[in-house]
Design a protein around this nucleic acid. Structure first.
Lengths: 196, 196, 196, 196
DNA sequence: TATGAATGAGTTTTCATTCAT
DNA sequence: AATGAATGAAAACTCATTCAT
């Protein structure tokens, strides 16, 4: 019976979030009012704050969830038995796909935080990825697949820059194509060259 | 001598407009305040209203100007001596290029007007283009280049739909490529087929 | 229990309206600020807009209410069993009295709308009265009390002009006296003259 | 030739004042903008301040002029050879007439000063009148026409109160009639009663 | 827990007044 | 002396968030 309550709460939260995100995409974050979200969700305005701390929190929660999902995927990739370079490819493409699907909301969130630098916390993505990447890159270096003359941290930073630069690209090239090109170039450069 | 005053006014108006549009693109329309525009333009807040009737008017004025420029290009194309199908191609590509360059501002304007249906007037585009198109399509039909079994108005409506559908496309295909494909298909269908 | 809430709302609305109208009469419409109204009502400034759409709306609402009250009086007069001329007298004097009591607010409203022609809707008075008047005048004509050689509409228009001209009179004559004189003259002219 | 200039200046000042007062009466003081006055006077906005110190100064100047005219009339009455009571009557009626003609502007001015207590100086009327009144009342007391058991200052204050109370009267009675009644009562009470 | 009224900070906009030309 | 652009203070209005019921 406590369960019924619990399930209902989750449903309501989901419902508010869905409506809100729909509005955010349609009208932009600032131009969406809490009142109209709750009107559309057929709930009182004040109820919003029983489920979210702020308007921004809806975005934050959604993106955090997406990022957790992504993290799980990354962990699965890490656990798999492919080559390190193969893992890196998979990771980057998975991250890219996840980003592409939520590109607008993600940018909205970033923009909001550029304007309100003190507001909520950042979506906790970077740090989590980094640990996984460290593992993989180290593995690749130990296996002799990756160059050892470049510090691991630099490699990781560069790797993450691939996603970053593609996210903010102004080129007409489709996102995933763009990403693949950069990845190819990066892996080529990272590989240890065998003497002929 | 009255000229100095006049020139300065134009410069200031341009300067306000430039700063404003830059902010619009960077932060969005609603999130840009008149105060910050004028701060960046190093002028008093109230001065804004000596040059523009409202924040929206900056967008409107800019787009109106762009559309007038586009109209001049279209008229030049109409005056030229190519084949009607050639003219249609040029027109569509010119219009597409003009739109692509200002896509964000244009969409911003549309969104604002969807939310404030009573605000400013629409940028006066459609009607002006139509007259020019009527001329060209008619010419093509008379010359035997275009099919006569489809009403001119329908042809024009479809032609304009090419731009429209591309403007709102969600495909990753680059805008101009997308447009070119549709144009190719459209012209092919419009052409009079000669018996072999 | 929902009733307490509801009753409080009505009381607050009334209180804001009362304070506002008092200020309007004392300082004029434009010179009264929403902030000072709400200060005097001991409420936050923003609260004003939970009850009224705009400063102008306070005036509009009040006058609309007054006009509805007047309409009820007119309907009662129409239902009564006096002579048509008697009814016309009563109507005019009732309307006059109602107007006289709210003369200042009414003029304030008119002035505001002359300056802001697009603002709120007019207080809905004319049309409603007209139907009642048509009934009475027709009745008078059928009973042989009123002349039939003048169209009903003209008679009504003239009748309504009595109030109008008195409302805008610059004469020092007291309003109701002025109105009574005009009414007397009007009814005299409207009466069917019996042959001696 | 200096004269031409001088005359022109006076004409312009008069013209601005006329236009401004017309607007004040039509739309109210606050709702009249300096820009629209000068637009109607076919002059640049800034030119206004070459002739008047502020918007309020137009009212002030006009009323000061009217009051000076009134003062001259009062002085003439004082110089005349009538009875003191006769002089008081004439003074009050002259003052009343002068006020009645400019009632609206006068009230506008008073209202403005109630709201902006620090603004311009008061129209310099009271003090000037008082001296004249002191002379007349004293004369009346010395001649045995007025009661001596009431201090002169009190008599004057009461006398001035007659005008004041009539100015702010809500009665429908015409202004001058109202004033005459009060004057009659006042003079009757002031007169020395002769034993029968 | 759900509600919606209250609030005040933040934004747009107006306009009297100043001042450089 | 005439002008009109620049200015900022003040006012209307919106809305995220709080809180009493």
């Amino acid at each position: 019976m406590n369960n019924r309550r619990e399930r209902k709460k989750i449903l309501i939260k989901k419902s508010i979030s869905d409506v809100a995100l729909k509005f955010f995409l349609a009208k932009g974050f600032t131009d969406t009012t809490v009142a109209e979200i709750m009107e559309a969700a057929d709930l009182g305005t004040g109820t919003f704050y029983n489920y979210f701390q702020s308007k921004e929190d809806v975005l934050h929660s959604y993106l955090t969830e997406k990022i957790n999902e992504a993290r799980h995927i990354l962990e699965a990739i890490q656990q798999s038995h492919g080559e390190p370079s193969q893992k890196l490819s998979e990771i980057l493409l998975a991250a890219g796909k996840s980003y592409e699907e939520n590109r607008q909301l993600f940018n909205m969130y970033m923009q909001f935080h550029r304007q309100n630098p003190d507001a909520g916390r950042q979506p906790p993505h970077g740090p989590l990825f980094k640990e996984i990447l460290v593992d993989i890159v180290s593995e690749g270096q130990e296996k002799g697949e990756f160059r050892k003359d470049i510090p691991t941290a630099i490699i990781i930073e560069m790797f993450m820059g691939l996603l970053q630069s593609t996210m903010t690209s102004y080129l007409p090239t489709p996102f995933m194509d763009n990403l693949r090109h950069k990845l190819s170039l990066f892996l080529e450069g990272l590989a240890v060259k065998h003497q002929p």
